[in-house]
């Protein structure tokens, strides 16, 4: 029993001919860190939105199949009711911030659920402490940097203590510094609070390093799914859909093709793995290379 169970999910936006999601099956265990990747327009965001009911409740369309989060059928609950279970963070930090101080922004969600004042205050303190933003408490979000704004958007969602955090391209509008702030927070949430995280992100290197599982989508279907090293070892499939693997993996593919070697498997995904892989490669062809030079 996973915390998120998607079964035979089909979805089509109203007025469009093509299915955006085609027969999606996904099981996510509690505490898992999943990164969804794929070219734009492949249905990543739509898949995320089905998890709290934005699709099909706000974006109308035809939906088949079931989405079950924390043993609740999402279609039977309102978006607001789901928000205590699924936290949703979007791409643009500007359009997620509603208040004029950091403190009010974090308090916004619990206020909506009419929690007692002491409880709200406690949660705000807790979250600010966790994110190390205590000194920004009375600031106007307008004066924060992009990364801090997105961190605030995450904080605002965390105030409801959701079990699953869904992030739809949280770093794609940020500068490198902001990306680092946000991705560190996401990794910490998973590691320290054991929160289930489903993120859409384009940075493969980061995904390969942190994700428990990578899901690659193409044209509304899940093409590849599994641990980073499993996924990027299916060279043919990865190359076929034109997906860019981590740079070290790409280099390994390239070396194998160019030198027509029988490269050691599995391919490296992270930098440390790459170091090992190159050592293996060098050891394997050391004598052969030397012979040629001498001859």
């Amino acid at each position: 029993m996973g915390i998120v169970e998607i079964e035979n999910l089909w979805y089509k936006y109203r007025g469009l001919e093509e299915w955006v999601l085609k027969d999606i099956n996904l099981d996510v265990k509690e505490g898992e860190f999943i990164i969804i990747m794929g070219p734009s327009g492949c249905g990543k965001s739509t898949l995320c939105y089905t998890l709290n009911g934005i699709v099909p409740k706000l974006f109308h369309g035809e939906m088949k199949g079931t989405v079950i989060v924390d043993s609740r059928d999402v279609s039977k609950y309102t978006i607001a009711e789901m928000s205590t279970i699924v936290g949703m963070v979007f791409q643009n930090p500007e359009t997620q911030i509603t208040s004029l101080t950091v403190e009010d922004e974090i308090a916004f969600a619990p206020e909506n659920f009419a929690l007692p004042r002491e409880e709200i205050k406690r949660r705000v303190d807790e979250i600010l402490e966790f994110l190390g933003m205590t000194d920004l408490r009375y600031r106007n979000p307008y004066a924060l940097s992009g990364g801090q704004k997105q961190a605030l958007a995450i904080a605002a969602v965390l105030a409801l203590k959701p079990k699953v955090l869904v992030l739809d391209e949280p770093t794609s509008m940020l500068d490198p510094v902001g990306q680092k702030i946000v991705s560190d927070i996401i990794a910490r949430l998973n590691r320290e609070l054991n929160m289930t995280i489903i993120a859409v992100d384009h940075r493969v290197e980061w995904a390969a390093e942190h994700a428990d599982r990578i899901v690659i989508m193409n044209k509304g279907e899940i093409v590849l799914e599994g641990k980073p090293e499993e996924v990027f070892n299916k060279k043919e499939v990865v190359m076929k859909i034109g997906f860019r693997p981590p740079q070290v993996t790409e280099a390994a593919y390239y070396i194998e093709d160019m030198c027509r070697l029988n490269a050691p498997k599995p391919y490296p995904v992270t930098l440390t793995e790459a170091e090992k892989w190159y050592r293996q490669l060098i050891n394997k062809y050391k004598w052969g290379g030397k012979d040629e030079q001498e001859g």
């Binding site: 978006i79 789901m82 928000s83 949703m88 969600a109 009419a114 929690l115 958007a153």
Partner: peptide, 18 residues
């Protein structure tokens, strides 16, 4: 709207304030 609704805006008729 998406962001506010997924944080429970309008879920209840009354809300508290910090």
């Amino acid at each position: 709207g998406m962001s506010m609704e997924s944080r429970g805006f309008g879920a209840l008729k009354k809300r508290t304030f910090l």
